[in-house]
């Protein structure tokens, strides 16, 4: 069973695991911190863009739609590389963690704008009429009546999007962000052993599996329909 032992030595090496565990664990906190930052900025910005779009001002809608379509089309890695390696040429040097945050935050904002917009447009026009007829302003109607209903419709698709975009935090390793994969990768090159990658994979599962289960719960809850 030489090959089996070789496999265990490579991927489940207790000695390597013990030595590099603290380093990989450090990456976990960076991933969580960056993830929270991306989710908060991405979803907030997406909601504000969708809200701005309800005003129906062409001067506002055209740039919003361009932003949304461009950032939905671009591969996140391309955005990250352009920001990290391109911007210094025009004198803007951003820390790698900030580049990762901006890139993924923008991508999530673009996708969540579309999700919120779909939610807003599926709220019946009678809701707007009822609220406006009581003297509520456009903004009050949008945020007190329409948006709560839109958010409810948006939650299942938004959760899926958020998870798939947040997973791209691993791309940070390409520009030296010391998140889980970055730490695991450097531990890999120092130890010449793949066990740190196994630990990294384990940590990703620890972070994302609860989110995925939560999204399934939410989906089930809201697929019963009837508000």
């Amino acid at each position: 069973m030489e090959s089996w032992e070789r496999f265990v030595f490579t991927f489940f090496n207790a000695e390597v695991a013990a030595r590099y565990w603290p380093q990989v664990l450090e990456g976990l906190w960076v991933t969580i911190f960056a993830g929270v930052a991306v989710v908060i900025t991405g979803i907030t910005l997406g909601m504000l863009l969708a809200a701005a779009r309800t005003l129906g001002w062409k001067a506002l809608n055209v740039p919003i739609l361009i932003f949304v379509d461009v950032f939905r089309a671009l591969p996140p890695l391309a955005i990250i590389l352009v920001l990290f390696f391109g911007l210094p040429n025009v004198g803007i040097v951003l820390p790698s963690l900030v580049v990762l945050w901006i890139a993924l935050g923008a991508v999530l904002a673009a996708f969540s704008e579309e999700v919120f917009w779909a939610g807003i447009t599926s709220v019946p026009p009678g809701q707007w009429m009822a609220a406006r007829s009581t003297g509520m302003t456009f903004g009050q109607t949008l945020f007190m009546v329409v948006m709560p209903q839109a958010v409810r419709l948006a939650i299942p698709p938004l959760t899926n999007r958020t998870i798939s975009i947040t997973k791209n935090l691993a791309l940070g390793s390409a520009i030296g962000v010391s998140e889980i994969l970055g730490q695991a990768n450097s531990a890999l090159s120092m130890s010449s052993n793949a066990t740190p990658l196994t630990m990294g994979a384990f940590l990703y599962v620890v972070v994302f599996a609860p989110l995925i289960m939560a999204s399934r719960l939410l989906e089930r809850r809201y697929s019963w329909g009837n508000h």
């Binding site: 809701q127 009822a130 609220a131 009581t134 209903q149 508000h227």
Partner: peptide, 27 residues
């Protein structure tokens, strides 16, 4: 002025995310 002109709709248009009390108190 709209506050002084009530309106009642064919399809009621109550706010589904608010209770009856919430519907009446919102405005």
């Amino acid at each position: 002025m709209r506050r002084k002109i009530g309106m009642v709709f064919q399809s009621f248009n109550l706010y589904p995310h608010l209770t009856v009390l919430g519907n009446v108190t919102l405005a």
